[in-house]
Simulated assay, not measured.
Amino acid sequence: MANAAQPVLGGPDFLRLLARLSDGAMPATSPALTDRLGQWVDWNRAVALSAALTGRLPEPGGAGEAADDVLADCAQAEASLQASIHDDAEAERLLDLAEAAAAPNFASLRQRYLVLQRAIQTATGRLRGRLREQLVQVSPALARLAEVDAVMEQTLSPREHALLATAPAVLGTRFERVHGQPGWRAPFRHDMRSLLLAELELRFHPIHGLLAALRSH
């Protein structure tokens, strides 16, 4: 039993949820970002990050869209995605069909999860780019922050995508395990919703950081 995997205790809620849903089949701890970052940054991106951190401060750009518009759009997009996840009638319909089926089939629910996952990715990627464009308009210091964020996104996105891509498989395994058990439908729907909300929180984390920087000026 000494080698048994333990739930992830630290890190984002998304990791803790994956650990719980996979019944502890994930590593006991996630390597600290500072310990792993050097392994993830290739030479070209390391040079780009160094330039963004130590190079000459860029001058503010020309007039762009109003900061209030960007702030409002970020808040509206996050609220809209949260509502879509909470009030997903299509997922409820698919669960009804799965409950009535003699043989469990996760394929349709997996596709629905992927649709919502892509919606989160598309919206957050677009907003993050708009925020960087807005930061460039404000001050040289915030323009540097935008440069650093762009390099960090390019560096960490492949790892983030690989992690997030495991979610449908973990959820599918759980579906096969609980389908047909008494009262399985509501807890499974809760797990699916919670995992999507945790992913939304994870993807909005850098956006909230950029928003905080923008609001401070």
Rank of each mutant, 00 (worst) to 15 (best):
M1V: 08
M1P: 07
A2K: 02
A5Q: 14
A5G: 11
V8Y: 01
L9V: 09
L9M: 09
G10R: 12
F14N: 10
L17A: 11
L21Q: 14
L21K: 00
L21P: 00
S22M: 04
S22P: 00
G24E: 03
M26T: 15
P27Y: 10
A28G: 13
A28Q: 05
T29Y: 07
S30Q: 13
T34F: 08
R36Q: 14
L37A: 07
G38V: 05
N44H: 12
R45F: 06
R45E: 15
L49Q: 04
S50C: 00
A51I: 13
T54C: 09
G55P: 01
P58N: 11
E59N: 07
G61Y: 12
G61W: 05
G61S: 06
G64D: 02
G64Y: 07
A66S: 11
A67E: 12
A72V: 06
D73A: 14
A75V: 06
L81P: 00
D87S: 13
D88I: 08
E90V: 11
E90Q: 14
A91T: 11
L94C: 11
L97Q: 07
L97H: 04
A102V: 12
A102K: 09
A102P: 01
A103T: 14
F106C: 07
F106I: 02
A107K: 11
A107Y: 07
R112P: 08
V115Y: 12
L116E: 11
Q117R: 13
Q117L: 13
I120Y: 04
I120P: 00
T124Q: 02
R126P: 00
L127H: 05
R130V: 10
L131M: 14
R132A: 05
V136R: 15
V138M: 12
P140A: 12
A143N: 06
R144V: 09
R144A: 03
V148E: 12
M152N: 06
M152T: 06
T155M: 06
P158H: 04
P158M: 10
P158D: 08
P158L: 05
P158Q: 04
R159Y: 13
E160C: 06
H161F: 09
H161I: 13
L163K: 05
L164Q: 15
T166N: 08
T166F: 12
T166W: 12
A169V: 11
A169E: 14
V170P: 01
V170W: 11
L171N: 05
T173L: 13
R174N: 01
R174A: 10
R177W: 09
H179K: 06
Q181L: 15
P182D: 12
R185Y: 00
R185W: 04
A186S: 02
R189N: 14
H190L: 11
D191N: 04
S194C: 03
S194H: 11
L197R: 05
L197A: 01
E199I: 05
L200I: 00
E201R: 08
R203N: 07
H205T: 08
P206G: 00
I207R: 06
L211I: 15
L211M: 14
L211K: 10
A213Y: 13
L214N: 10
R215T: 02
S216W: 02
H217W: 07
H217R: 09
H217G: 15
H217Y: 12
